[in-house]
Design a protein around this nucleic acid. Sequence first.
DNA 1: TGGTCAATAT
DNA 2: GATATTGACC
Length: 703
Amino acid sequence: MIELSIVTVKNSLDALATLRSANEAFELVVTDLHMPGMNGLELQKQVKEEFKIPVIIMSSDDKESVVLKSLESGAAFYMVKPVNPDDLHNVWQYAVASKKGKEVVIDQEMGSAEGVTSSIDKLIVCEDANSSSSVNEEGSQKKKRGRKRVRDHQDQKEENDPVPAKKAKVVWTNTLHNRFLQAVSHISLEKAVPKKILEFMNVPGLTRENVASHLQKYRMFLKKVAEKGFWTSRNVSERVLRSSFAYGYANSMFQNPQQEYWPFLRQQPFMRSSFQPGYGGTFCGLGSSRCGLLRFPNQEASSSNSVPQLRYGQSSLFCNPTSLQRPMFSNPYPLHLANRSTFNNTGMNLFSNAATTNGVTSGTSPMQMNPEQNQANLQNNATPFKFGTIGIDSSNYSSGASNMGTINSSYPSLNQNNNYAGIRLTSEGELIGTGLKRFSGNELSSGSNNGFNGLINWTHNNNLNNAPPGNEKFGFSGAQVAGFSSTGFGSASQFSPTFFPANPENTSVLAPMPQQTSALAPLSQQHTSTGLANTEGENDNAFHNLMNNASNFCSISDNNQQDLGEGDLGELLFGSTYATPYQEQNVEGFLNVNLPSSPYPAEVSSPVNELLNAEFSSACTIADKTPEQSSSQPQGREETVNFDFGGHVSPVRDDYYPSFEQPQCSYVEPVNSELSGIHLEEAPISGNEVWGEEYLNFLLTDE
DNA sequence: TGGTCAATAT
DNA sequence: GATATTGACC
């Protein structure tokens, strides 16, 4: 038996460096798919070129397109997290054997990693330090026992030293914070104490102390808000606004009193007196510290129509037939999907239904398929385009796309500076529709992509089949073109009014909607990830366009209203409905799809809410996880990582994203939020404020 | 024991 | 400076 030697590195670059320095000593690379900077696919590509050793990609992303893409790219295996340690064991043997042209003997008896018998010398595991281990607990333990860490001295020390290492620092990421907020909301602020919050949050590794600390901070924030009076006329209290908490709560604090989307808000009366200057409402600053909390976890990804749901505790392996002689395990991947191995298909699979409906076969996004129709849809739709539905993702982490020009962006992202606001439609990562493409009437600006070459998939709506003629197919409309994004700090990204839960009872996905209820139009969340991307160097432009669109929408949707003035910023920001039927339904399950209509067009405020989210999100920084990212960032924004425009389209199941299987209450064990060692898969919340101010100024001056 | 506050650390 | 951790006190 030869001892298995494993080197863990934090990122792709380190992995490559290690490989290079090791002078071909490694036999196998296991990498996360979604990583900052160079993602798993890129790494695989590079490794393949340079070292010709098999690469196993693992990710919690079980989307078929992603899987296929990965396999297409040459990954030896694709393992869906959480990885079953036995699978890992076997796979790695197989992969290595494959490389050496050996037959692999499956020995189930081997079981765990320490039992590995092979000629393997070294295995390099590239897993972002901030990513969760992705291996379930049992797997983690086995994994640890079986490997010898080279890089992680601290861990090594931890393992050998009886003296426990210093407690890992908890980074309150958006998701974590959202969960916190959800807990507080659920418990009610008055009764929310660390212990209860902790219980509700149910985040492994998180301690009561952590929660207490965060609660303390949160209370301080609330106090601050209460003292300052929150939004006063045009002058958004910048200090507050800029604060992470403010960012995070902005959307939560003000709700359309006309819409009781949040039953629990009743416990927090003040919240229901949100200001609506333009609509005769009143804008109430926070007079109390009882801030409403409306944060909900990311929606569960329901890759319903294809890839089997792989939940916590399960793993799935995807074998690359091109890399391996034969599959070694029964492949849980549906045959019909497995057979789809052509590259062209990969980009299309996500909306295969839509494609089918439209007679489009492959390789194109809905937009590509029929832009006219989309446009028509937009126009058909009585609902003005809601800016709020535009998501701006900013993450390299984010989707499977990342820099690979790939696949879906279903994974909200995570916090990079790569703001993009353009429409990206491609089957192979090609940027389509860059350069300010617009839809007539309700414009959806396309824009630029700053370093993001990913493909944003347009998603089909599972409800499409029942959609009224003329409005079907694409799962988006003027009001529904949605983006995905990383969660801002408590941003609306997870509550984008754009995305609604699939509801079999209400399938008028793209049906023209009365203006006042447009925000409530149901839209399936399934497989959603329409996106906006911008191209390199056009960041500002795209952003500007978005802003313009925001204004346009406001005008369009609110014909009776005066033009937005500076003083209406507040209104823009919080005034009207920040309708989040999506969450409402999913999270609380309180409401039907047809939420009470609001006399207030959501379009007016949603956009800005979203924009504000960008502020909030932009306030987030990524702790030095991704130094290499900065090179692609606009100068002066080096630390701005999370430009988030709401529109958490997709369920979050990313390597960097804790996944919330259940959006409400007792959380299911998040796939990726293992906190031992504190793994937090998104940008921490902090206070970069560059974008915030910029943006606000823009809002106030550009009309 | 648990919550809160404040000092300290990063 | 902001935020997380730790310790003290209730």
